[in-house]
Simulated assay, not measured.
Amino acid sequence: MTVTPATAVAEKPRRPLSRFRSIRGRETWAGLAMIAPAGILLVLFLVIPVLLAFGLSFTNARLISLNPPRFVGLDNFARAFGADPMFLQSAWNTFLFALVVVPVQAGLGLLLAVLVNRRMRGVTAFRVIFFIPVVTSIVVVSILWKFMYQKDGLINSFIDTLTFGAWQSVDWLNNPATALPAIIVLSIWQAVGFHMIIWLSGLQTIPEELYEAAKMDGASPWRQFTSVTWPGLRPTMVFVLVTITIAALGLFVQVDVMTQGGPTGSTSTIVYHAVRKGYQQQEIGYAAAISLIFFVAVLIIALIQRRLTRDKD
């Protein structure tokens, strides 16, 4: 076949385009290969379990049973809100725990961040000290605090020393009035260092020139905080509140190690109740329904928080 000059000119633009498509195709396949391991793990351990939980929540499936699961519709959800008082108690305990932990832990974390965000000798050591509980296993921390909360433990002995023997020892974890507050104190102490670091990273992104301008205008330290520091921490505040809320609503380890939901259900939470129903009492279908309710509740609370803390024009 004879190639005319016009044909040759017409075919020239096709070669760079085909090469570009080839390079783009190789980059696409390379990118897919890189995300494949994480994607497979997410599908196996997140997407599939969520879909299975959704399906099981409408059945009477049991962990070990000779009978096949039977579709029961909304019976599990009706049971949770009507015939299972322990679920309602667990929901109230979870809500109360989050209601106290979220503002206190966020506020203490911000206070510590402001204190350690100074150029002074030894400040790095204080940052490390406050962060040590975060890197310590929560199981180990819970076991240690369980011993400290005993009637003859360190906390009662310390208070007895401060009051010169006038203190009557309290069995903190076996008293329905003090068991949940005891877990709240432990949880705040254990995680406040993590949020201190998050607040600290936010503080260090605020330009120093803004503080210098505020000082030149005669602003007091409190005025500098409200006019410069707090507005600059708004994105950090949203992240801290959301992470603390999700962690607080998912309270499980401390309860499982220290009280097993007792005494008389005063420390049972939604997650602990779901695990107990699913694995101890083998009611997988009902436990899946509780997990679905928990998921929807966390999603709604997170959306409300995001709406309340969003940037307003």
Rank of each mutant, 00 (worst) to 15 (best):
G82E: 08
G82H: 11
W92I: 05
G109H: 01
G73Y: 08
V104N: 03
N76F: 06
L108V: 12
G73W: 09
F97R: 00
T94C: 10
G73N: 10
A98R: 01
F77Y: 15
A98D: 06
M86Q: 14
L74I: 13
A91H: 09
L99N: 08
A106I: 01
D84A: 09
F77L: 11
T94S: 08
S90D: 06
L108Q: 06
G109P: 00
L110S: 05
G82P: 00
L111N: 11
S90C: 06
Q89A: 15
Q105W: 01
A78D: 12
T94H: 05
F81D: 10
D84T: 11
T94I: 05
D84I: 06
N93E: 09
V101L: 13
D84Y: 15
P103D: 05
G73L: 11
G82Q: 11
A91Q: 03
D75A: 14
F87T: 08
V104P: 07
L111V: 15
G82F: 09
P85K: 12
F87P: 00
D84R: 14
L108Y: 04
L111A: 15
N93V: 03
A78L: 12
W92V: 02
F77M: 09
A91G: 14
G82S: 12
L99W: 05
G73S: 02
L74R: 07
A91I: 08
L111S: 11
F95D: 10
R79K: 11
Q89Y: 13
V100R: 07
N76S: 15
A78W: 14
L110W: 01
V102L: 00
F95W: 15
G107M: 03
V101M: 12
T94E: 04
G82L: 08
L88W: 13
V100G: 03
A80T: 01
G109L: 02
A80S: 07
Q89V: 15
